[in-house]
Design a protein around this nucleic acid. Structure first.
Lengths: 335, 335
DNA sequence: CTGAAAGCGCTAACAA
DNA sequence: TTGTTAGCGCTTTCAG
């Protein structure tokens, strides 16, 4: 079983006593329109199967100037949401009888550019670009190569994009948080903090604007005062919360936590406290993880719809338009 | 910018006033051994860059009978461990300047076979097969096509394989659990239950044997009495635990939970109980999720080393041996 | 109904 | 130091 040569259509042709072109037609399904004798087709198929013939897609695709590959790049698989994105992508690609080429290219823009170029070299039929650090240069590369592409999660203004409706989700989450604090009787809408994220990112900006909007008219000082954009890592969030805790001398009435990673940081601080104290703080998180609803305290969560976002992304690719357009997918609020 | 034809080496050759082969040599780095004049190389490179030339890897690889693609199949991205596996794989592939083709093929063996065949059609240089439902048929397909392959997480006895050292990990975890119950003074080693998993799977069997071994000599009835292999889903686990709870009239002294999904099921039941009661039950889980250590009660966890497993898998591919061999990677015990 | 032959873009042996 | 050419495996026109 050593290095058994892969059979080609010529081998099959030889065995069948036909020409390579007949074999090609018989095997790739185009034989009706060539009016090949059904028996010939049967014979050829049988021989092919016996010899373990498999079409060489490199050759076919080179000839056809396609690849049957659909590419996706995303930074990593370090959160549920990213894992769900690639899962949904892979599912959709398989439905289309194509082959997924998923590249985890890290957060560096240069690395992302290289990944895109590499996919292009494989003649991928289209590229889904998720959570790009710097979208526009990537859009340019794809456009110049004439490769259809669509952005997911982080938008480009030069290409079709689909993102979570961050403002909407943040508003809903904030409203829900405020409602809880009202029920808890802490009149805490004066005292709701936004924790985590990067003020330079559109997604964080949109969430902040949703957060502020939900406060509309109910505040005596602008919500912006209570926005702590300490990045997207756990440890700084823990520190930020600890500091806030010390300043206030207690936990705030409520916390809007901007991502699951930040939420990890929050929980690390909460883990040092009495359950009694935690229960006085209404918690909301703009992200989802299946273990969070199982904590001992309630957490309002927003779940981004990876499946829907991928669906919309593919429908944009199918349109074939390629001009900039932004779709927003409203996330779910889990209570 | 519409459909800008991709430039070929012939286009570049024309522009440079050289032949296609000179361009080819100049651009793919093999020019020193062909003693092309450095200035010629420079000129060609410059023209290539100006024209946005990118090598067509389909053509190159067809010619070279390689693909530069490394394939991986795994069921899904529904757990951290799987996500970490594909992450580690992608990382390693990028280090090798290849391109990852990750296919999530679901749990059905037929689908996994199709995915493998599809990767083979692309002439992937090697395949990493993770968590195969039925490994041997997949090994056969790869072997017949002469494609190097290695199994990860679920072993085949017909091919190189690397798995977690389940028996070892289970033994360590169980010992740690027993130690805790001893400290808690419940003399609970009579009362430690193994929950979850599939008795038909080698991995579960190995974990059970590690579980039993850790009890060695300390039991008055065989550990097997307390093994509830209720599958790998959350809901059945919740039901199983609930039933056990009712039978005993209390929680057992300790629980060895066989996977993170099962652990989710366990937590769902625990969520209905008083914290006081939960604290009397020592919990261990053969898996890892970053949120579990943040629960209000301590959980002993085993973390499988996806990174190491992938490293070992690649070293087996590098060996080029291809004969069956089983490597076991000891997991970490987190306390 | 079927065969012969060109060519997708690239590499490498053979010539020069 | 460089050009010419054959051919990777397949599809598809053209010619029977």
């Amino acid at each position: 079983m050593k290095e058994r040569q892969k059979a080609t259509i010529y081998d099959i042709a030889q065995l069948a006593g036909n020409s390579a072109s007949t074999v090609s037609y018989a095997l790739n399904g185009t034989w009706k329109k060539r009016r090949i004798k059904p028996e010939t087709v049967e014979k050829i198929k049988k021989i092919a199967k016996e010899n373990g013939y498999r079409v060489n897609l490199q050759a076919r695709n080179l000839r056809n100037a396609t690849s049957g590959l659909l590419g996706m790049i995303l930074p990593e698989h370090d959160t549920r949401f990213f894992a769900e994105l690639s899962q949904a992508f892979a599912q959709e690609v398989r439905n289309r009888e194509s082959c997924p080429a998923i590249v985890l290219s890290g957060r560096a823009s240069k690395a992302q550019e290289e990944s895109i170029r590499s996919l292009i070299s494989y003649n991928v039929d289209a590229i889904v670009i998720a959570a790009a650090t710097d979208p526009n240069p990537l859009a340019k590369i794809c456009a110049e190569a004439g490769v259809p592409h669509v952005f997911v999660d982080h938008a480009s203004d030069q290409a079709p994009s689909v993102v979570t409706d961050n403002a909407f989700g943040a508003k809903k989450l904030t409203e829900s948080i405020l409602e809880r604090t009202r029920i808890a009787g802490t009149s805490g809408f004066q005292d709701v903090y936004f924790l985590g994220g990067d003020i330079g990112l559109p997604s964080t900006q949109d969430r902040i604007s949703g957060f502020c909007e939900a406060h509309d008219g109910r505040l005596d000082r602008p919500a912006e005062d209570r926005i702590i954009a300490c990045g997207y890592a756990a440890e700084p969030t823990t520190q930020a919360l600890k500091k806030l805790h010390e300043q206030l001398g207690r936990l705030p009435a409520a916390l809007f936590v901007n991502s699951i990673i930040c939420f990890e940081g929050v929980v690390r601080h909460l883990a040092t406290l009495e359950e009694q104290e935690i229960s006085k703080c209404v918690l909301g998180c703009f992200d989802y993880d299946p273990f969070v609803p199982l904590m001992r305290f309630p957490v309002l969560m927003v779940r981004q719809r990876a499946d829907l976002m991928i669906e919309v992304a593919f429908s944009k690719l199918d349109d074939g338009v390629g001009s900039p357009s932004l779709s927003m997918v409203p996330p779910d609020l889990l209570v």
